[in-house]
């Protein structure tokens, strides 16, 4: 009961038989969406990115734990998480950067590349919704530091067709690191 309230809505399963073929028109449209989204975020077009979100957005990034191989399914923690956002809180994050002069954690902004790959698309029970899995490798460069923070993760998205356009309704980000190696998640993944 408590766990259900603390955790986000579970994602639908990825059913192999419902997979869209790579190169099919809908697959290509979704790949375009992910590439365009990465371009917007890399170039700080955050207000424009906000328009891609549905009002019922759920956006979360579980914690990870190092557990034994036999307990691999317990390596994901969805009670306390690194991110657990609604549409309202996500837009507050956007506004903090676009509408203030003091979002110091990202001002000056990081130089970020979001490299999207391994994209797989599944039809779901809902005709207007697709489940999309992608790998994301983020490189983040701040100030004159001679190193990059690397943020490798898998994303599980629900993309919904709304009045002809694709929108992001749900995103779960599974980070590889137990102890996150970048000083904050002040950038959008």
């Amino acid at each position: 009961m408590l766990q259900n309230l603390l955790e986000p809505t579970p994602l639908p399963p990825s059913v192999r038989a419902n997979r869209l073929a790579i190169g099919s028109p809908e697959y290509n449209e979704i790949l375009d969406f992910l590439y365009d989204e990465a371009e917007m975020l890399d170039n700080l077009r955050l207000a424009e990115w906000g328009e891609l979100l549905t009002q019922d957005l759920e956006y979360n990034a579980p914690l990870r734990h190092t557990r034994s191989t036999a307990q691999f399914d317990q390596t994901y923690i969805r009670t306390v998480q690194h991110l657990h956002e609604s549409y309202g809180s996500m837009m507050m994050r956007v506004k903090r950067i676009t509408d203030t002069k003091s979002a110091w954690g990202e001002d000056p902004p990081s130089r970020v590349k979001r490299m999207v790959s391994n994209v797989r698309v599944y039809k779901t029970d809902k005709a207007d919704e697709f489940k999309v899995e992608s790998y994301l490798l983020v490189t983040r460069s701040r100030f004159d530091f001679d190193y990059f923070d690397l943020i490798p993760c898998v994303r599980y998205d629900i993309l919904r067709r709304v009045e002809g356009s694709l929108k992001l309704a749900r995103r779960e980000i599974l980070l590889d690191q137990v102890v996150i190696g970048t000083p904050n998640l002040g950038i959008i993944l």
């Binding site: 603390l6 507050m92 904050n184 002040g186």
Partner: peptide
């Protein structure tokens, strides 16, 4: 509890809109 947890995650810690400014300083 769920409301307190969400607000805590949004303001504090890894992605917290308050504490990300500290971690960059």
């Amino acid at each position: 509890k769920a409301t307190m947890l969400r607000l805590g995650v949004q303001l504090l810690g890894t992605s917290g809109m308050v504490e990300q400014d500290d971690s960059d300083t």
